[in-house]
Design a protein around this nucleic acid. Structure first.
Length: 554
RNA sequence: GCGCCCGUAGCUCAAUUGGAUAGAGCAUCUGACUACGGAUCAGAAGGUUACAAGUUCGACUCUUGUCGGGCGCACCA
């Protein structure tokens, strides 16, 4: 409906522009469903945007547009759905549309079913979303959990809005941390055989290290004892890495998160990609040597200091493989790169963008979302956590306590960059305080309602019978689903969808309290069944995109 | 010191990226089930959007300054 109105306005503005003697360069303006019934059904702020460009008063422009719309409506039948146009306020254009034009939207929803909400918004855009990317040196924490929930929902939403999306996990399997992991496991392995061992400084102390060592001992027996320490640690490292990745995959699968691709850092070295990337930067003149180290001149791209890529010891810094990794993203044909990082990586954003620009890419192609931390509460009291002592509040423990649906919903219900307070007691409550149940209840209630009707949802009905304010409210809210998804995807903010669904559920519950669906009036019953089914489809599709189950009963 | 982020109802957060009277949930108070699920609905109360100037048809949103809070400023990963 918004699109139909936009189409008309665009044409009219172009036509009128000739008479204004000034060109209208920019045709962006908003059309929204009016919040206040006094503002009609739809409202456009086009007159303001145009007036500025042609140096006229907004109100006068609005009047001209109104007159043109009315004139055109007399000529063209397909504009008959517009019943009234008003100029209000300082120059808003308010459109009133016929009831049957609104109610016919229901047909579209039922026809599209699972595909309802899809759009062409992202057509032709190839996007890679990288998230979680935790080192496989320990179990996933709730911080990873939030990234996983947000990243996965974002991927689903981007897909639903037409993007070609790859979900990717960057596996830091080449660095010092993995060696430490190997050494830690090796030490515990030796202890299993009551051999003397030196636990590495900064090693991993968690009890899961001992579990891995036990598993290693069970599999390899005492075989590794005869190897050289270097080789044994290498073996322990590989074994530990694989074991941890299996656990991580399992933790993620338990909240319905999966990846299309695991990108291994070590493949960068196998293909010599890091050296080649540095070579490329050197050719373009962005590298220089100083104090025996190799520096990247990131200040040329807005960084506040230059960064070392290769230390005087000959080792790469963390930045070097990271640049190579991002180069690979572009080389693989992605034109939009989205990264979800923790707040501890905040300062890396500028230098990474600088590097990508140095390689000839636009900084707008990289979008780094800093996912703020989650603080756990239990009945109003903060749950302390510490990674240093090897005690984690793991994602797995959280999921077991509150369930996958509440976990996913709570993780995404705030803006990405807003720190999240996660109340365990609230997430577990099966009451009206818990927003997850509000959404699921609406879905279950509709399913139950359709069961009660004792018939299949009709394929067609006289939808014009849906004419009460509650009917029309519900229809309009349902019809805003595609727009909500586009907003969520262009802002990279899945919470938008959660917010929309809450609104939809509320509108449905309000409708339900006022309107009876199954009555003796067969025609009205048929139309209302189609309406509630459309609401159910929308809720179901939305919940799916959030990775939350859609119960038929609760 | 420099840079970035934040400050909205008692609490947790929104506000369609500059739009009309700043909205939701929780908490508080008052109501609503003799046909479809009360895990619901209707209503009340709650605000100088930290403060002060500026930009314009229009500012929670943009600019500048002040106050208050957080984070970052490694040849660490």
């Amino acid at each position: 409906m918004e699109q139909k109105i936009r189409h008309i306005l665009d044409a009219i503005i172009q036509e009128l522009a000739a008479g204004w003697g000034a060109p209208v360069q920019d045709l962006t303006y908003d059309i929204q469903v009016s919040k206040d019934p006094a503002h009609g059904d739809y409202a456009a702020n086009a007159a303001f945007k145009v007036a500025r460009q042609v140096r006229k008063a907004p109100k006068a422009v609005a009047e001209e547009i109104k007159t043109a719309v009315l004139a055109r409506r007399r000529e063209k039948k397909e504009l008959a759905f517009i019943t009234r146009v008003e100029v209000a306020g300082a120059g808003f254009l308010n459109f009133y549309v016929s009831q049957d034009s609104v109610s016919s939207l229901i047909d579209v929803v039922l026809r599209q079913d699972e595909r309802y909400g899809e759009s062409e918004f992202g057509a032709g855009k190839k996007v890679v979303v990288e998230f979680v990317s935790a080192n496989p040196t320990g179990p996933l924490t709730i911080a990873h959990g939030r990234q996983a929930a947000i990243g996965d929902s974002l991927v689903r939403i981007l897909r639903h809005t037409g993007h070609d999306v790859t979900a990717e996990y960057y596996l830091n399997d080449a660095g010092r941390q993995m060696n430490l992991l190997g050494a830690s496991v090796w030490a515990r392995y030796l202890e299993e055989f009551e051999m003397e061992s030196v636990f590495p400084e900064d090693g991993y102390h968690g009890s899961y290290i001992r579990d891995i060592a036990k598993a290693l001992a069970a599999q390899r027996k005492d075989e590794l004892l005869s190897r050289s320490p270097e080789e044994a640690i290498q073996q322990a490292r590989l074994f530990a890495g694989e074991t941890m990745m299996e656990l991580i995959r399992k933790d993620l699968a338990a909240i319905d998160v999966s990846f299309d691709h695991y990108f291994s850092e070590s493949t960068l070295y196998e293909k010599d990609a890091v050296e080649k990337t540095l070579e490329l930067l050197r050719e373009k003149g962005h590298l220089y040597e100083q104090d025996g180290a190799l520096w990247f001149r990131s200040t040329a791209f807005g960084d506040d200091k230059d960064r070392v890529v290769k230390k005087s010891t000959g080792e790469y810094t963390y930045l070097a493989p990271d640049i190579a990794y991002h180069l690979s993203k572009f080389q693989r044909g992605f034109d939009q790169v989205i990264n979800l990082w923790g707040p501890d990586h905040h300062s890396y954003v500028t230098r990474l963008k600088a590097a990508c620009q140095a390689l000839g890419y636009n900084e707008k192609q990289i979008h780094v979302l800093i996912v703020q931390l989650t603080t756990l509460y239990r009945g109003g009291v903060q749950v302390r956590m510490s990674t240093r002592a090897g005690e984690f509040v793991t994602l797995e423990a959280l999921r077991q306590e509150v369930g996958p649906d509440a976990a996913r919903f709570f993780f995404i219900m705030r803006r990405v960059e807003t720190p999240l307070d996660f109340d365990l007691e609230l997430a577990k409550k099966k009451s009206d305080e818990n927003p997850v149940y509000y959404l699921q209840y609406a879905h279950a209630r509709i399913a139950s309602l359709i069961r009660f009707s004792g018939r299949a949802v009709p394929k067609s009905a006289d939808l014009a019978r849906l004419n009460t304010p509650q009917d029309l409210d519900l229809i309009k809210t349902i019809s805003e689903f595609p727009k909500a998804l586009v907003q969520a995807s262009q802002m990279s903010e899945p919470y938008r969808l959660a917010d929309y669904l809450r609104e939809l559920a509320a509108t449905f519950h309000r409708f339900y309290a006022h309107a009876r669906v199954v009555t003796e009036d067969e025609a009205l019953t048929a139309a209302r069944l189609m309406l509630v089914e459309a609401a159910r489809i929308t809720l179901r599709n939305g919940l799916r995109l959030l990775g939350i189950s859609q119960p038929e009963s609760m």
